[in-house]
Computed example of a mutant assay.
Amino acid sequence: MKKLFLLSLTLLGFTMAVSAQDISDNAIGLRLGDSDGLGAEVSYQRALGDSNRLEADLGWRNSSSYNAIKLTGLYQWVMELDGNFNWFVGAGGGLAIFDGKNALKGTDETALFVAGDIGVEYNFDIPLQVSLDFRPELGFGDFADDLDFDIALGIRYRW
């Protein structure tokens, strides 16, 4: 009986400690990182509940050597650290398309990748969110058949 009481108290304490935080229904902005050579991405977040959301990022590059597009989708769990300061972890994947020009002409490739995500964010009292995240990506395809690490600063408008 004593063990059951202690277990119940522990579960109740854990439930109270993992309280729901206020995440925005929508946020859109930029994710400024390497993005495997594509640079900045347009980033959109959509809340699915009190502590879960989807993030979709679109990066593209149009240079004299190649054109490339990268679409990433992540499911994220958001946990409160302190007030407006949260941390998050997520998993997902995406698609990358590469179209070579000039010396790379005829090099048209498509690759799939899986990705993880971990980071911190701060939601200001104004509708602004700033985040810093680390995203490892494992690619499957000719031009993206490796493990890449991306660190990025995100700036988003929340509503």
Rank of each mutant, 00 (worst) to 15 (best):
N86G: 10
L4E: 08
L30W: 03
R31W: 11
A115N: 05
L95W: 10
G100E: 00
T107G: 10
G141T: 02
F85T: 11
D145H: 01
E121A: 02
F5A: 00
I118K: 07
N102I: 05
F140Q: 04
G29A: 10
G39Y: 00
N26H: 10
A152Q: 13
T72F: 03
L153T: 13
I151F: 00
T10Q: 09
T110V: 02
R158C: 15
D142A: 09
F14E: 00
T15C: 07
P127I: 01
I23G: 12
V42F: 10
N123I: 10
E121V: 02
P127L: 02
I155D: 02
D25M: 06
Y44G: 08
S35G: 15
A96E: 08
L4I: 05
S51Y: 08
S51M: 09
N52Y: 08
N67M: 10
L112S: 13
R61G: 06
E55K: 09
L104H: 06
Q45T: 07
A20P: 14
M1S: 01
E109M: 04
F149V: 03
G106L: 00
V130P: 15
L71R: 01
N102D: 10
G141W: 00
D99G: 13
S8W: 01
V89L: 09
G49R: 03
D50H: 12
F134P: 14
A91E: 12
D117P: 07
S8P: 12
I23E: 08
I97Y: 13
G59R: 04
G90N: 04
A144S: 03
T10P: 15
I126G: 09
L147P: 14
D50C: 12
F140L: 07
